[in-house]
């Protein structure tokens, strides 16, 4: 018995040592970036191997935050929150609804629509960019957030597919039992399915927020007023291959821009823990 306890402890220690070391390797590059943001721009270039700055400076944060042409990063962050926040709500909600339709209902042409969804996922944005721009321009949406946000409310292939996989993992007996009790399909979706796919909803939310936060291409194409630029797009402007880049300021702002996603992840990942596993539905 003593042996057993010892063995358990050793495995536990090994587990933690291993995960910790491995974690360090994983975050080394991120650490490097974060710490570099406190280095002088020239020091970043010359002493790439050093993790810690020779001279700790906040200069990069000050010049970086100033932004461009009088538009500070405060504005860019606010815009990113608006875009990513609203898009995420839209994408998570609409994708869950659509996924339920695909996973649990039988209707004509279902496989055709499903294939269309996959097809849309495979098409690189760059080639439909021009026609889409013309379309949105005709609608008078260019220069506003509408072309970026509205499509998010109409279901995103990746999240739809993800939710489908999860809904398919829920035993049919549950639906049938509820149906016997006189629940409508809609009620089943809201009362039974939604709570059970919480992990995939949370995952969708994390991804959606992160992708919208990082996305600069649609901002580049559709936005015109610097007052509406998001962080991802503003970050690109520190780098100019021909006229010189302020890497220090870019690293500083890039590091700052990680925080919102990181905080979202930390708060959301707790909910991943509660899945079917904890409710123990299947007997």
């Amino acid at each position: 018995m003593n042996d057993y306890v010892l063995k358990r402890r050793v495995t536990k220690v090994i587990y933690h040592v291993f995960t910790f070391l491995f974690a360090f390797v994983m975050i080394y590059p991120v650490l490097w970036m974060a710490l570099s943001s406190f280095k002088d721009t020239n020091e970043i270039l010359k002493t790439a191997q050093n993790l810690f700055p020779e001279k700790f400076t906040l200069k990069n944060y000050i010049t970086g935050w100033k932004g461009f042409g009088g538009y500070s990063f405060g504005i860019f962050f606010r815009n990113s929150f608006i875009i990513a926040g609203i898009s995420t709500i839209g994408a998570v909600a609409s994708s869950a609804v659509v996924a339920y339709g695909f996973a649990r209902c039988d209707f004509k042409l279902k496989s055709l629509w499903f294939s269309c969804m996959l097809l849309a996922m495979m098409l690189p944005f760059q080639v439909i960019m021009i026609p889409q721009y013309i379309l949105f321009n005709r609608l008078g949406w260019v220069g506003t957030y509408l072309p970026i946000i509205v499509p998010q409310f109409l279901g995103q292939g990746f999240f739809i597919f993800l939710n489908i996989q999860f809904i398919k993992g829920i035993p049919m007996d549950l639906d049938e039992a509820a149906n016997m009790d006189g629940c409508s399909v809609y009620k089943i979706f809201i009362k039974i399915i939604l709570p059970l796919i919480k992990p995939s909803l949370v995952t969708s939310a994390i991804f959606s927020f992160m992708w919208r936060w990082d996305d600069f291409l649609s901002a580049l194409i559709y936005l015109s007023d610097p007052l509406t630029y998001p962080v991802s797009y503003a970050l690109k402007m520190f780098a100019d291959p021909t006229a010189g880049s302020d890497w220090g300021a870019m690293f500083a702002m890039a590091t700052l821009s990680l925080f919102p996603i990181f905080v979202i992840f930390l708060t959301m990942q707790k909910y991943l823990v509660e899945g079917i596993a904890s409710t123990g539905i299947k007997g």
Partner: peptide, 17 residues
């Protein structure tokens, strides 16, 4: 009304426009 962007994005933007 001013708009500015980085070099590589610039040409994608103006050709799309």
């Amino acid at each position: 009304k001013t708009e500015f962007t980085d070099w590589s994005g610039y040409w994608d933007k103006v050709s799309t426009m």
